[in-house]
Design a protein around this nucleic acid. Sequence first.
DNA 1: ACACAGATAGACAGATCGGTCTACCTTATA
DNA 2: TATAAGGTAGACCGATCTGTCTATCTGTGT
Lengths: 194, 194
Amino acid sequence: MSTQNNDKRTLLVETALDLFYRQGIHAVGINEVLKVSGVAKKTLYNHFSSKEALIVATVEQRDQRFQAWLNKRLGKVAAGRATIEAIFIAVDDWINERDPALGPFRGCFFINTSAEYSDGACEIFQCCQRHKQSIRAVLYQHALVALGEEAAARRLADSLGLLKEGAIVAGHLMGDKQAAVKARETARRLMGLG
Amino acid sequence: MSTQNNDKRTLLVETALDLFYRQGIHAVGINEVLKVSGVAKKTLYNHFSSKEALIVATVEQRDQRFQAWLNKRLGKVAAGRATIEAIFIAVDDWINERDPALGPFRGCFFINTSAEYSDGACEIFQCCQRHKQSIRAVLYQHALVALGEEAAARRLADSLGLLKEGAIVAGHLMGDKQAAVKARETARRLMGLG
DNA sequence: ACACAGATAGACAGATCGGTCTACCTTATA
DNA sequence: TATAAGGTAGACCGATCTGTCTATCTGTGT
């Protein structure tokens, strides 16, 4: 049946995403995904032509989940400065695992994945790129509301983007659980709120 | 002979570092390292007890090379603000591959490696952590010279660290070759030079 | 000249990889 | 109830992985 069909596909993607995020992609074999999910190998290759296709699906899934989570967090916040601050607060909750929606914190799945697939021509890397561009678009949108002028908004969005990526990296690699708080304070200073 | 002994070891580490940085660690097998370096397998296992030991050696080698490169770049610059700016200029040259000392730019080897070995208890991850802490110490040292006050210097060093990590990530994942220039401009603003 | 340390090539082992395929089972619908 | 689609379990394939081991060669110090 079609619904079960999608159920299996979804189960595979969610299981793979969880394992890939925790352990890295090359470190997780197809057989482990099958064992954990309880799905048969034939079913996997019925839905995906290869491991790479499964990886692409997990990246897209993570993108959708992340953006849905972020939109929910930002839903009731006024556009502009308040939303920009809310983004850093959301990242802080993510790093400190105060929000179960994203699961445990192991850094940015897209940064981690692009570390393993860094060929700019490959589909996996490009999926990661698209995600980052989506997030940057959100930052620019609210920077524009905050500042009203395009060039200044671009500059602010660039700075905010760097701070956000830096916070995620520092939160993971350096174990600095305050990284997003520091990023938010720096952002406030850049927006003239410090 | 003892010198040849070290020659082989060094050759193995440099070859492995180059391959690991370009392709990722799990994606490179021991046999490939041996083939490219022209060293016999027995010799490798004479110097390293396992692949993991070789990986640790490559991370340490990258740390040494990076710090030597940075120190050279900063050698003739006045301590404080000027050195902080020079750091971002150096990162810019790295991203745009204008300085052959670090080879091609594939993002931060330590970030990439910690993406594949993210268990906080494992030796490899801890080596990556130590590197980042060394760099942060340099930032703090010059922030202190620039500001003269410890708490403010810590805040500044934190902000600069986030901008630097963000620039490296943006330069790689988003292909933003201007990332370090933007980070530098933001840093200038934070230091009251904007 | 001889002994020995350390290098070489590469066979080999055992596990695991991604991916294919067979054979059987379950279930919804005509 | 018959049919057909899609699931299950898992054997199997060739390739590759890390790591061990044998056997041979080279070069240095005494």
